[in-house]
Computed example of a mutant assay.
Amino acid sequence: MLKSGELNTRLTWIGQGDGTPPSWTVLGSMWGKLVAPKSAGRESQASIYASGTTFISIRPRSGVLPGQLLKQGGDWFLIEDINGTPGELQLAARKLAGEPAQYIPKSGESYMVTAWLAQENILVGARSEPRQQIDLILPELVWPFARVGDQLSMRGRLYRIEGKVEGSDNGTTLRVMVS
């Protein structure tokens, strides 16, 4: 059973994305207790999904499902598994971790997003030019997004979006090809 003082983190509860353009419904808010993964023996992060599982304890409530999101400040968590015990729901969640980037659409205002650029993912385009892949958190993007010619600014460099990586939209993240 959870004690009130243990629930010290305010979380926004967000449903799975649906529709075109995609939208994510805020289902409510809740108090939780976050236990971050231990760093010993953890592999390095290979994508926007952080390595290791964050455990989140909340009071029991109906409708909490794997695939939904929790947001705390600038941090996003994807619920992967749920285990119920009397007086408590224990969620296993994967943190979506990246670095701040500025999304610059061809038309409209630029805005901040969380992006992940793996240095090892350099590919070669049709004209032998280097291409890379960048992962983005879908609920942070403003429709229309991932259009050829949109840009991302991160690490002091400007990346031009060449298109979406086929099959990359899992409802939570999106992978774009950039040059």
Rank of each mutant, 00 (worst) to 15 (best):
I79S: 06
E99G: 13
L117V: 07
P86D: 03
G108N: 10
W13Y: 10
T54I: 10
L91W: 11
S29T: 09
P22S: 10
L78A: 06
L136F: 07
Q68T: 05
K95L: 10
Q151S: 08
G52F: 09
A36T: 12
G67C: 04
V113I: 11
P100S: 05
P22K: 03
L141S: 06
T12V: 14
L152H: 04
R155W: 09
S107F: 07
S62D: 07
Q133E: 09
E43R: 15
L7W: 10
I134M: 12
F145N: 08
G108V: 12
S110V: 07
V35I: 02
L117F: 05
R10Q: 13
K33G: 02
V142T: 07
D75M: 03
A40Q: 14
R59Q: 10
L96N: 09
K71G: 00
K164W: 05
P21F: 07
A97Q: 13
T12Q: 13
D18S: 13
N121L: 15
R131F: 05
E80P: 01
W116T: 05
D150K: 11
S51K: 14
W143E: 12
S168V: 03
L136A: 04
G28N: 15
A118S: 15
Q45A: 01
S57I: 08
G41K: 04
Q90D: 05
K164Y: 02
G28W: 12
I122D: 05
P86H: 09
G41Y: 03
M177E: 14
A115E: 00
I58Y: 05
L96V: 08
G149M: 12
S153K: 11
L65T: 05
G74K: 00
L2G: 04
Q102N: 10
L78E: 09
W31M: 11
W24Y: 14
V113Y: 13
T20W: 13
M1K: 00
R157P: 01
R127W: 06
I134A: 08
Q90G: 12
E88I: 08
R59M: 11
G98R: 02
E88F: 01
E120T: 10
D81T: 11
D18V: 09
G125A: 14
A46Q: 15
V26H: 09
W76D: 03
I56A: 05
K106D: 00
A46D: 15
N121F: 09
A118E: 08
P86W: 01
R42Q: 03
E43C: 12
Y111Q: 08
S57H: 07
P130G: 06
A50H: 02
G156P: 10
V148T: 04
S62P: 08
P21T: 05
